[in-house]
Nucleic acid binder design. Sequence first.
DNA 1: GTCTTCTTCAACCGGAAGGTTGAAAAGGAG
DNA 2: CTCCTTTTCAACCTTCCGGTTGAAGAAGAC
Lengths: 117, 117
Amino acid sequence: MADPLSRVFSALADPTRRDIVARLAVADATVNELAAPYDVTVQAVSKHLKVLEDAGLVSRSREAQRRPVHLEAEVFDLMTKWIERYRRQAEERYRRLDDVLRDMPDAGPPAQEGTTS
Amino acid sequence: MADPLSRVFSALADPTRRDIVARLAVADATVNELAAPYDVTVQAVSKHLKVLEDAGLVSRSREAQRRPVHLEAEVFDLMTKWIERYRRQAEERYRRLDDVLRDMPDAGPPAQEGTTS
DNA sequence: GTCTTCTTCAACCGGAAGGTTGAAAAGGAG
DNA sequence: CTCCTTTTCAACCTTCCGGTTGAAGAAGAC
């Protein structure tokens, strides 16, 4: 899976990873601290962090043996832009459909609407 | 995978499905029409549409044998809200960090627990 | 040096994802 | 009714994903 957008969406498709992101939004944390609340092994959380890191959502620095994890907010823009683009497009299309229907009082389409029975 | 947010993120983690969404933002389409550009079988696209439908991103009506697929824009809000929340939080924290660093020319404690008096 | 802590690497396992082929519904069109 | 089109269902296969255990790096602490 090469493209960045897929990596970000995929990374956030997991509830545990979203929870990690939520906690990192409050404060940086180490792998051990992050793993504490969950009943999975530290290794599993380390894997989750690798996924988040590959997606560009977090970065890790070094501080003695510890590797504090930091949330990188910029990548969110990628998603937001993608989402907003198609949302706007879809909503505009929706609006336009309303207009078309208003301008078309006749010309019975096959849609089984109420049909003025 | 029960929760709606995971379903939406997961659905959009696939490039083909994102492309389908992009095309549906322009106009509704049938399964056959949607499948045409890709070099996968129609069945595969039908599966993709099922994923998108389960995520609430598209809906299907019935029109003779055809099942026109329609993009539902509302679900995007779920994601947008989630994303914006943590992005804002992270950015605010970033700003605050700048302030802290400016007010703290020295004194480097390991900054373990919060104790944000 | 040795010990301890924090983290990651490697191998493995079960299940879900995305693809295929083949057949079956569902509904016109002849 | 018989065909044809559109779509989905059912198996099946392969790869990826999230989890495990066990061992190995990395960097203080003693």
